[in-house]
């Protein structure tokens, strides 16, 4: 009698429990979706709408079709900013891939002592904010002949460089800064990847007589592929969104000179310096397209798509 009663209660509860779970489920994910609707979805859609309007932020909007896109795409300054962004993106992030893997490989060597000291010091720049990094580098790489960077150049018998105003000086200084801040981050990601590689692979290779370099190229690198794809993805997105570093590094001349103007700086200038919100929104849409295209290309390259295809056709 008691047993029957118990199972009855349990069954009854179980039915209503399912319904309760359903309600709780929706209720618990609701805050995220409400915030997403207001802060994420609405602004994204409104940006796309604004891309087709002429608007100074105060007066009425007028529909102008594709005019904003035409204005942006025929503006030499926009293309200069695309060029700058890509050049600094490549110079700032590509070396990170090489050094990141090298550092991670070395930091994982069994005999290495002071592992954590090396790991912490190489990672430390990532902790500093981008603004702080940009200010430190604006002093290291200032236009003065006595700046440390120029002093090192003169020691090497080279001419001092105008790091704040020359075409390549600005780009090189900003790329070095990006490299310095992020290489430790990528190293840590690769290190996590290397540590996930089973040890018996290396043991088997050692027995087969493979040396350390062969092991690096034939075991570590291929096994690291997913981690490389991940960092290529984040580096590509990050590089195309470059804003804080050049803006703070250049200080007062950030929006008046074009040597290091990036796409996001161009967008910011249109919107908040020139009150041309239509063209700024068009730039945002173009940026989205550029990010999608570059991410697709770079991750395809990183996953060795081209190599595989060639291998198949041979």
């Amino acid at each position: 009698m008691a047993a029957i009663n118990h199972s009855k209660v349990k069954k009854k509860r179980f039915m209503s429990e399912e319904k309760k779970d359903r309600v709780s489920g929706y209720l618990y994910i609701a805050p995220f979706f409400i915030i997403f609707a207001i802060i994420g979805l609405y602004p994204a859609l409104f940006s796309i709408f604004l891309g087709f309007q002429k608007w100074n932020g105060l007066g009425p909007m007028t529909f102008v079709g594709f005019d904003n896109f035409k204005v942006v795409l025929t503006d030499p300054l926009f293309w200069k900013s695309v060029y700058n962004t890509i050049v600094m993106g490549i110079m700032g992030t590509a070396p990170q891939l090489v050094f990141g893997i090298l550092f991670a490989y070395l930091l994982n060597l069994a005999f290495l002592k002071f592992k954590n000291v090396f790991r912490v010091t190489i990672f430390m720049p990532y902790i500093t904010s981008m603004v702080a990094v940009a200010l430190i580098f604006s002093v290291l790489f200032s236009d003065h002949e006595s700046s440390l960077a120029n002093y090192v150049l003169t020691l090497a018998g080279l001419d001092p460089v105008h790091w704040g105003t020359s075409e390549w000086g600005t780009k090189i200084a900003i790329s070095i800064m990006v490299f310095w801040r992020w290489v430790g981050y990528n190293t840590i990601i690769y290190l996590a990847g290397i540590q996930s590689i089973p040890n018996d692979l290396y043991e088997a290779a050692t027995i087969d007589g493979a040396n350390k370099f062969q092991q690096l190229f034939y075991i570590t690198m291929p096994m690291l592929k997913p981690f490389i794809i991940l960092t290529v993805f984040t580096s590509t997105v990050g590089a195309l969104q470059l804003f804080s570093e050049p803006t703070v590094f250049l200080g007062t001349s950030a929006f008046t000179r074009d040597e290091a103007m990036t796409i996001v700086m161009y967008l910011y200038r249109d919107a908040f310096k020139l009150q041309s919100f239509g063209t700024a929104s068009a730039t945002a849409i173009i940026l989205l397209v550029l990010i999608t295209v570059f991410v697709a290309i770079n991750t395809l390259i990183a996953s060795g798509y081209g190599r595989k295809k060639r291998g198949e056709s041979e």
């Binding site: 609405y42 602004p43 994204a44 940006s47 932020g57 919107a271």
Partner: peptide, 13 residues
């Protein structure tokens, strides 16, 4: 979604 896409509408919001 890159944060810059929503920057301007977020500002007005």
């Amino acid at each position: 979604i890159p944060p810059q896409l929503g920057l301007i509408p977020q500002f007005f919001l």
